[in-house]
Design a protein around this nucleic acid. Structure first.
Lengths: 348, 348
DNA sequence: GAAACTTATAGAAGCGCTTCGATAAATCAA
DNA sequence: TTGATTTATCGAAGCGCTTCTATAAGTTTC
């Protein structure tokens, strides 16, 4: 019975003798390798079940020189953002990790990362087989990971031509703005922050492309970029001030993310600017708050969990290839772009 | 140099021969145990530095029969809540874990946890030395953890008399309502959901105690409890409808958490009920959104990171005691209550 | 000044696995 | 038929540590 208090640990040896097999055969059955007759396999499996054998992770890791862990590196500020964008990506990874028998070790790094000083423990101790880096992180950290030789994939960020999973921001931007244009808008503003983040700049690029296609060549007077290092509600609020006092009279605003859109709507509410009557607003991300704002926010939905899942799948594939030492470079440069979905609500 | 690509792994053996010592002596230095002369210790430490030796986690774990991991179990829905309450607690734990050389393995469990079927892998494989359980989780899971014999502490929840870290909800509730009473309110309503959660019921109890002390014996007509299994913005919105159409004319509402308070304020805004002029509102948690609402929400601040830190410290202590096999039971029944802070903003 | 500790170090067993031959029977190619 | 392959199993080495035991020298104790 499983509640016998002080049960001795069941080892592979116990299973072997119970099933009249050698340890190596048991190992092969457990790992699905090598040649084992059906009969023996059946015996071993039933012994495993009967003895409630669970392989020791550390023994296994030591012997096979793997760790069975993968690291998930994320900026602390991204993790605690009130909109769980990265948290949901992490959840997707965590979820998918169960299918690959990985444990996910989360490492948050501070925004003012210092090379050498703040190296995540999982990197220092090389206690992971692979790494997922989510969002924009310090370049030094990126280089440390690169130098470590540990395979990694990026999420919602790019670095050199390393494998990465990103949202298809460009297309999403194109579509969102095209939608506004089809609705009859022509003076469409863009607000954003941190153009060094490829996701943000791709959204802006999408905006520009759609505007260009509609015949608006120079849109620079309609583009407002905040100084903040990350676009937040506050950024949106502040930029709204600039937008509505700039002399331009935009009838629509495409915001780099929902937080900014909500900030802008807050400003509009305070200044009695009616949305969507006077100004249409469209966000990006489809955060939970987008449904609860008044008016409800039209936005671009991003499938966060899916991104996390794909990142892990991709990494797992990479590790497997690495292990077999084949086809590595064909696959490792993949860049996956996840499509988005325009969600039309009340703000447009 | 550290960027020499294919460097062999440095083992304790290498350090030993480099420092003219035995492996056991090196081990003692690394772990700060036993007797080592100052001279030898210095040699060994400098060899470690020179060779850039990092002990292998798996070897160490295998030999010492520990895992160096602690598990953090949390309901999936709690993790992705748009207000990062548990996420921040987790972050506190993650942060503190660095001081104890633990890795934190997160395990999210579904809300409809099934005994045996959904057992977190870290439990099944016994791949943790201790466990932190955050928030309310399924009873079956609790029992499984209990049966496993792995030490654990609860956070923001209680179970039997196992060690737990909670917010001092009772006092916080007393203070919040006392504040309202001092402000001259007498018709004070309470809205909440899920009274089976000890935190919520303690807040309600605090409310009742303060009301009683002020001479209001029967407050049952002022207490509104939603059916939802977790108090959300929607719950608050829905309950607001009941509160303001109940015939009671509360001049203040104490909400079981900020999400509900914000939901209630949204309703008030739509119905043109002025806050705080007609109704004062007070929340609980001090989530990020509380600062950004209009009017800004008066609320009870909870120090989430601190809770996570304390939980890990407590667990670490437990494990140490367990290891030494002493004083165990004196400490293990501790119940820590973390004080809160009333943050007065515009809604009262 | 002999018995009893304390301090210091080395050696070796062993933690529970994986994996590399070794061996041998069964199957295949020609 | 015979050598080459494939299938099946086992034994043992070894992954990199911790920790127990042995040994010896230095220090107390009365």
């Amino acid at each position: 019975m499983s509640n016998t208090k002080s049960k001795k640990k069941v080892t592979i040896k116990d299973v072997a003798s119970h099933a009249n097999a050698s340890m190596s055969t048991v190992s092969m059955v457990v790992n699905g390798k090598g040649y084992v007759s059906d009969e023996k396999r059946k015996d071993i499996l039933s012994s495993i079940r009967e003895l409630e054998y669970v392989p020791s992770t550390s023994a296994r890791n030591l012997a096979s020189n793997r760790t069975n862990n993968i690291g998930f590196i994320l900026r602390e500020s991204h993790f605690t953002l009130s909109e769980p964008f990265y948290t949901r990506i992490f959840l997707g990874t965590e979820f998918e990790s169960k299918n690959h028998n990985f444990y996910v070790l989360l490492a948050t790094v501070t925004d003012d990362y210092q090379k050498g000083m703040d190296t995540p423990r999982l990197l220092k101790e090389r206690n992971v087989d692979g790494i997922i880096i989510a969002g924009k992180v310090n370049q030094d950290l990126l280089m440390e990971v690169e130098d470590s030789g540990i395979p990694f994939v990026l999420v919602d960020y790019q670095y050199k031509s390393y494998p990465c999973i990103t949202v298809d921001n460009l297309n999403a931007g194109i579509e969102a703005v095209r939608y506004l244009i089809e609705k009859g808008h022509s003076e469409i503003a863009f607000i954003g922050a941190d153009l060094s983040h490829p996701s943000i700049s791709a959204r802006l690029e999408g905006y520009q492309l759609s505007m260009l296609k509609a015949g608006y060549k120079d849109t620079s007077h309609l583009i407002f970029i905040g100084e903040d290092q990350f676009p937040t509600l506050q950024t949106g609020y502040d930029l709204a001030g600039k937008v509505f006092t700039s002399g331009e009279k935009p009838t629509a605003v495409f915001c780099a993310n929902d937080a900014m859109a909500l900030g802008l709507m807050k400003y509009a509410e305070q200044k009695k600017i009616k949305i969507p009557e006077e100004v249409a607003v469209i966000g990006f991300d489809d955060v939970e708050g987008a449904k609860f704002s008044s008016p409800q926010l039209t936005t671009v939905r991003v499938f966060k969990e899916q991104i996390g899942e794909l990142a892990l799948q991709h990494l797992a594939q990479l590790l497997e290839d690495d292990f077999k030492n084949d086809t590595k470079y064909e696959r490792s440069n993949h860049m996956l772009k996840i499509p988005t979905q325009l969600v039309i609500r009340e703000s447009t």
